[in-house]
Design a binder for these strands. Structure first.
Lengths: 227, 227
DNA sequence: CTCGTTTCTTGACTTTCATCACACGAGAAC
DNA sequence: GTTCTCGTGTGATGAAAGTCAAGAAACGAG
């Protein structure tokens, strides 16, 4: 399929490959569909494969014994996950849940490892990606350790702005804002605190809400105030 | 130097290389010594090199504007750091400080990248290492988000046990316990809380202190109680 | 449109823990 | 030895934020 190859070309770790190789990959992979809310992978599961998101959004979560969850990240189109279990062979350390209906492209462990071996550029691209994720994780640890609730919420908003924000009239708009409960699970705080903080930011003039979209009036100012 | 090669052979990401290649590396690298407390790398600095710890201990820290710090990890002999700035070329996101007098082996960016290119096994070993670090970071994020102070402190103690604990008479001993302030910076809590929690754990019979060593009486029990 | 569910807002109350304060002990410096 | 410094132990206090509760708003299904 032409489409498939076009799509794979946009995946950060595969983009250096030749069309011919992408064609091979498109043949060994499988497409899978998931409804909103369905569990794609469960923590503690064995079995390993790489998943690339064709469409939709998923959250990577870790769960508490009493059902509370932390969202480690939210991934969207052409992001991938599942590489950790492949690389070190250990059980998955997190679950993956579809937050919208999603279509995924799955590559089996063996095929992916072959890819890594045959194409050093893929390995290096993957190293870069993992490095980026590590940087994000470190930033998150810093935020959770040092900042108060307001700072952590601001952080999550800014993170969203970077990931899915669109610039319009000099302001950053975030549509498809996650549920407050999910924001809370990203910020390490309670749902109520998310509500209160966002309204505090609105009162201070940093944010606005228009037709479900969250708008950051002055990205830089907001950032420097709370970062 | 024979020693040097012996030493490099113990570094996780280099252990698959031939003695001859290790010899080459030992020639392009430089040894450096640092006193206790000295700053090895500073956040925001450019310049990139890989550092392998020959002896001593260092902490990887991120700092607040007002001087508070988070310890992202503590590294010891044959651990390495500095790979992130090499891989993605961005400025360092954390500082590195010697917590004991330390000797490091430094490999320049160019030499390290060549290594990655020439030896796929090094790239794959590095992928595994980064994966492990990501797992640790994720666990830390979970702990910081979901657990109360007691849980986070227990977590740090268990982490130390895994990293530097020795098993003796069925108990886990941690000598060279970091300062309480450093434990606090790992657990995202205050120095006083560390003191209080450790004594609470001692009162509950989980821990003991003998001649400066911290002892976990029943590792599994302690873990299941607080994890 | 209407009803029912889900999500959000806001107030009141409670808990946790950071902070301040100070005392104590061990080890280094002299 | 004495004095100083650094790390630790512990109580008192207050601020921050979690929890509980109840109503409002938004959204979807029929």
């Amino acid at each position: 399929m032409k489409d498939e190859i076009e799509f794979l070309k946009n995946v950060p770790i595969l983009c250096d490959l030749e069309p011919m190789d992408l064609d091979t990959i498109s043949k060994v992979g499988v497409r899978k569909k998931y409804k909103k809310g369905s569990i794609i992978l469960l923590e503690e599961e064995a079995g390993a494969a790489l998943f690339v998101i064709v469409s939709g959004k998923v959250k990577i979560v870790r769960m508490d014994d009493d059902g509370r969850e932390v969202i480690l990240s939210i991934l969207g189109e052409s992001d991938f996950f599942g590489e950790m279990a492949i690389l070190d062979g250990l059980a998955r350390s997190a679950s993956v849940v579809a937050i919208t209906k999603s279509e995924l492209f799955m590559i089996h462990r063996r095929d992916f490892l072959k890819l890594l071996h045959d194409f050093p550029s893929v390995a290096i691209a993957l190293l870069k990606e993992l490095t980026m994720r590590l940087r994000k994780a470190d930033a998150q640890i810093k935020s959770l350790s040092l900042k108060d609730a307001a700072g952590r919420v601001a952080n999550v908003v800014l993170q969203l702005a970077d990931d899915i924000g669109k610039i319009r009239k000099g302001r950053v708009e975030i549509d498809e804002l996650p549920l407050q409960q999910d924001l809370a699970n990203m910020a390490g705080t309670s749902r109520e605190t998310i509500s209160r903080m966002i309204h505090a930011f609105i009162r201070e003039g940093h944010l606005e809400i228009e037709r479900g979209k969250l708008i950051i009036n002055d990205y830089e100012k907001f950032k420097s105030r709370y970062l």
